[in-house]
Simulated assay, not measured.
Amino acid sequence: MTALQSLLFFIVSFIASIAGAICGMGGGVIIKPVLDVFGWTSVSTISFLSSCTVLSMSCYSVGRSMLAKDSKVDLKIGTSLAIGAAMGGVLGKQLFTLIKEMFPDPNKVGGVQAGCLAIITLYTLIYTLNKKNIKTKNFSGIPVCLLIGLTLGIMSSFLGIGGGPINLVVLYYFFSMSTKTAAANSLYIILFSQIASLIVTLGTHTVPKFSFVTLALMVLGGIGGGVMGRVINKKIDDSAVEKLFTVLMGIIIVISIRNLVTYMG
């Protein structure tokens, strides 16, 4: 990979991580489809690099909030969801490997990921635009939280996006969380699922070929984006976060459909 390409990967990671830290999406839901558009490296490599970037950003954001004692994470609900997400991260990584082995053409896996992401994001956008008319739940039981976290972990790990919009919608609907509280809990969940996914990747020796320089730049972009996103998040209200979230979902849907057509064409 050329120096210019690595620099572009850094820029994408930085900008995506700012948005991810503000909205609680993790950034991977932007990084993965955008980098797929360029087609400069394999689907597996992009998923791995995206996951590492998301892990670095969420680690900083969650850790900084905990140290500053201004975290909005509900430890009872959030930890149960996070443990479930960690287990789901393991299953999601295995699912990715299984799907990958089903297709001799690795690009087809990217097509499956793009199609799933487009569908999930579309439903998320529809819910977000109509959430004022939807009556939410207020679950708190540990078994339910573990099951929901498991589902989120599977999807995020398989798609290589960290968490994405689906985390926020689930937290809105099942736990009646406000926008910023949902964002904080989403990053907490993402942290656990990405740690589990990385452990599985290392333990099963399925790390794809990648450039260490590119990885270092993307991780740097993830942390830098997390720093800036945290600052911005403190200065804007819930309505601004929701507007940014809605715009990003529209962009993600368009890019995912484009990637689906390209990979499956």
Rank of each mutant, 00 (worst) to 15 (best):
I195E: 04
I30Q: 02
A85N: 07
I166E: 03
S51H: 06
K131N: 11
I30A: 06
V37H: 11
K131V: 12
N130Y: 13
M155A: 03
G221C: 08
M264T: 14
K234W: 13
M218R: 05
Q194G: 00
Y60F: 15
S17P: 04
V54E: 01
L4M: 15
S13Y: 00
L150V: 05
M177L: 14
I119T: 11
N167A: 09
A21G: 12
F96A: 15
T201F: 05
S58C: 08
G20E: 00
V109W: 05
L168R: 10
P208V: 07
L95T: 14
V12S: 00
S256Y: 04
L55V: 08
S42V: 10
N138G: 09
G28K: 01
G63C: 13
G149D: 01
I166P: 00
K137P: 06
A21R: 06
A183D: 02
M57K: 06
P143E: 12
F174N: 03
N233L: 09
N167L: 06
T214L: 00
K100M: 13
M249E: 07
S50W: 01
A184K: 06
G115M: 11
V37P: 09
K100H: 15
D238K: 12
G78L: 01
Q194L: 02
G20F: 01
S17L: 06
S58I: 04
T79V: 05
S197N: 06
G162K: 02
L220Y: 12
F103M: 15
L98S: 14
L146D: 03
T136G: 05
Y60M: 10
P143V: 11
T246G: 09
I236G: 13
W40P: 00
C116L: 14
I15C: 08
S42H: 13
P106C: 13
F48I: 07
K131W: 06
L4A: 15
V43T: 11
T79A: 02
A86P: 06
I22G: 03
S256F: 06
S71Y: 07
T2D: 14
Y60Q: 08
S71G: 11
W40S: 01
V213S: 08
I31V: 14
S140G: 07
A68D: 10
S156G: 09
I236F: 14
T128Y: 04
S17R: 06
L91G: 02
V241Y: 03
L4I: 15
K235A: 14
I154D: 02
A16Y: 03
V247G: 08
I99D: 08
N133A: 15
I15H: 04
I126H: 10
G84T: 03
V200R: 13
V200N: 12
G28A: 02
A240G: 06
I195M: 10
V37R: 13
G225A: 11
T2Y: 10
S58F: 05
N233D: 13
S239L: 13
S211P: 01
G265I: 12
A85Q: 07
K180Y: 11
I46V: 15
Y263F: 15
T79I: 06
K180H: 14
S197V: 00
G111I: 08
G203K: 11
K108Y: 11
I252S: 02
T246L: 12
V37I: 15
I253V: 14
G26A: 10
S80L: 04
M57S: 07
S51K: 07
L49F: 00
L35H: 07
K234R: 15
G163F: 07
K180F: 12
T53P: 02
V12T: 08
D238R: 12
Q5E: 10
T45A: 14
